[in-house]
């Protein structure tokens, strides 16, 4: 039984990372009907910016001195990496997607694949293809309770992801920019007539989605110990499946989908075989596409974004 709880905790922690990434897919899809294939690479770049920011802020010195990296500095790393990725997302939108926005739907899709490949290769040039050990932004502490081992890192991942998701929910529901995003996803011409600046709102959507992906990247680095330039491929794909599972375009759906994929992956690894941990995601994708292609929370005329 304690092993089961262990798997659940690990699954929720991994799943909340998927959820953070899935939100970016779903918000962009809700507005542009575009699958932003480069989103996994934004996640990867977020992880690397966290890596470099942490070493710039002297994480190695703290490590050498046997002291933990101060929590305040860890938050600085998180916030700055999110800001850098927001900028990257805005640049991708402005340089790659905006010029093809009114082209037939296949064009932006192929553009997205191109951006994704470009960023993978840029990362291999800039950071070398070798995996890197992620700096200990948080020093690991272990708590044992009833045979279940919980690390502060797993808890921090869950808490940070949850806080960001609640923040996003409040932003989308309560702020005028959030309302503009929802309006855009429902009726773009009517939104324009309200006086909403469509370009600015799309920019905000990319900024927010990319910042969340960067947070996911840092949490992923902490969780998985190493990062590499291709880390966005598989994880990005899983997060995309999470968005489809929840109902693409639907914000709560992305969260539910992310958590479910994380749980499914962890339980499969624990009880079947670690060999199947990646396969289960794609099995879920096939099943959902056959049985409920609109996703778990997606209904016809469901409120999107």
């Amino acid at each position: 039984m304690s092993e089961f709880f262990q798997q659940i905790i690990n699954g929720l922690s991994l799943g909340s990372i998927y959820a953070l990434i899935a939100l970016g897919y779903t918000m962009v899809y809700g507005i542009l009907k575009l699958i932003n294939f480069a989103h996994g690479e934004v996640f990867m770049m977020g992880a690397y910016s966290g890596y470099y920011l942490a070493s710039w802020l002297g994480v190695e010195r703290y490590q050498a001195a046997g002291r933990g990296f101060p929590l305040g500095l860890a938050l600085v790393v998180l916030v700055l990496a999110m800001a850098a990725s927001a900028l990257l997302g805005v640049l991708i939108e402005a340089l790659a997607y905006r010029p093809v926005r009114s082209a037939p739907r296949l064009t932006p899709l192929i553009t997205a694949i191109g951006v994704s490949l470009f960023l993978q290769n840029a990362a291999m040039l800039l950071f070398t293809p070798n995996p890197r050990a992620y700096p200990p932004i948080l020093r690991e502490l272990r708590f044992a309770a009833g045979g279940v081992i919980v690390t502060n890192i797993k808890l921090a991942i869950f808490v940070v992801a949850l806080a960001l998701m609640v923040g996003l929910h409040l932003f989308v529901q309560r702020t005028w920019t959030g309302r503009a995003m929802r309006a855009l996803s429902m009726n773009i011409d009517a939104a324009r007539l309200m006086g909403i600046d469509v370009n600015a709102t799309i920019r905000a959507t990319f900024a927010i989605g990319s910042a969340l992906a960067a947070a996911g990247g840092i949490l992923f680095g902490l969780d998985q110990i190493t990062i590499n330039p291709l880390m966005g491929v598989l994880t990005g794909l899983k997060a995309f499946v999470a968005a489809v599972l929840g109902g693409i375009g639907n914000i709560p759906g992305a969260v539910v989908g992310g958590l479910l994929i994380g749980l499914a992956e962890q339980l499969t690894a624990g009880y079947l075989s670690p060999d199947y941990r990646d396969a289960i995601t794609f099995l879920i994708l096939v099943v959902i596409l056959v049985l409920k292609p609109e996703g778990l929370l997606g209904v016809v005329r469901q409120e999107k974004v």
Binding site: R182, A183, M186, N187, D189, A190, R301, E303, K304
Partner: peptide, 9 residues
């Protein structure tokens, strides 16, 4: 023309 309201709001 037609229904240009935000249906989900």
């Amino acid at each position: 023309e037609g229904r240009a309201i935000f249906a989900g709001m």
